[in-house]
């Protein structure tokens, strides 16, 4: 049973790897044959070489940690704010009414469009970058939390009335668990938006981070560095998402069973 499961897992991983392996192979061959301009698109061997050098010098770790640190800070602030405001708006009609117009107007503004203003306001240092991430992770968490809270099953609320439960009990035992799947969707969208935002912010103004690697690679015409950056974004994004999915399976144990 267990061996079968492991086998199945390995097969799944192999299947998932088919396209990337094929693409890298084609890429390498076309590069070797000189079918593409190496100064624009270096072959995988060149990129791996650049990657190895950066790890050796310790610069890779520095850039990755810088980006991850910003994401973590910004996401923590943005998602907490989204959660708190979302829960209040979902619970209290008045808060919802007060926020409705503001939300309607601000939501369509892409967080990236705020970067110039944030730089003017907060300076070119850490704060402005973290602020972009805060905005980027705030919206999905807020909107999904509000939606989740509002879609609480009214029949469950009736049960709570029959058992004479107070507001706090209702919030903790019914409303939050009801909203949990939607909240989780918000957090997942929030973290992925945070990751997009950090790269963009770093590309515009920074001296460190994955986004900086990319813009630096372009400025100095080092396409291999640039590609190390791009590939890192993909891989880290994938890792973050799979961690969140694992977490979701554990925390929302009842959803999978339904």
């Amino acid at each position: 049973m267990n061996i079968l499961k492991i086998k199945e897992k390995i097969i799944l991983i192999l299947i998932a790897a088919v396209i990337p392996i094929f693409a890298v192979a084609v890429w390498q061959v076309t590069s070797n044959e000189g079918l593409v301009n190496k100064s624009i698109l270096p072959g995988p061997d060149k990129i791996i070489e650049a990657f190895r050098k950066m790890i050796q010098k310790g610069t890779y770790k520095k850039h990755i940690l810088a980006s991850l640190g910003r994401v973590l800070k910004g996401f923590l602030i943005g998602s907490s704010a989204g959660l708190i405001i979302g829960i209040s708006a979902g619970l209290f009609k008045r808060v919802n009414q007060v926020l409705a117009a503001v939300i309607g107007m601000l939501r369509p503004v892409p967080p990236i469009a705020c970067i110039p203003f944030l730089i003017l306001w907060l300076g070119i240092d850490e704060e402005s970058k973290v602020a972009v991430i805060v905005i980027g992770s705030f919206w999905p968490v807020l909107l999904n939390t509000m939606h989740g809270i509002k879609s609480t099953e009214p029949k469950f609320l009736e049960v709570a009335r029959v058992f004479e439960k107070n507001k706090l009990k209702i919030l903790l035992k019914i409303i939050i668990p009801s909203a949990a799947p939607a909240i989780f969707t918000g957090l997942r969208l929030g973290i992925s938006s945070a990751w997009t935002c950090v790269v963009t912010a770093e590309m515009i103004a920074s001296s460190m981070g994955v986004g900086y690697l990319i813009s630096y690679g372009r400025e100095l015409a080092q396409p291999d560095t640039l590609f190390v950056g791009i590939i890192s974004i993909g891989i880290i994004g994938l890792v973050i998402d799979s961690i969140v999915l694992k977490l979701q399976k554990v925390l929302l144990y009842w959803v999978a069973l339904e």
């Binding site: 029949k155 469950f156 009736e158 049960v159 009335r161 029959v162 058992f163 004479e164 035992k173 019914i174 668990p177 949990a180 144990y253 009842w254 069973l257 339904e258």
Partner: peptide
């Protein structure tokens, strides 16, 4: 108003919390 000591009610759906 509802008072569980006086009156209990069972609905057609069990209304159990899935979590």
């Amino acid at each position: 108003k509802p008072s569980q000591k006086e009156v209990g009610i069972i609905f057609q759906e069990p209304r159990l919390f899935p979590w």
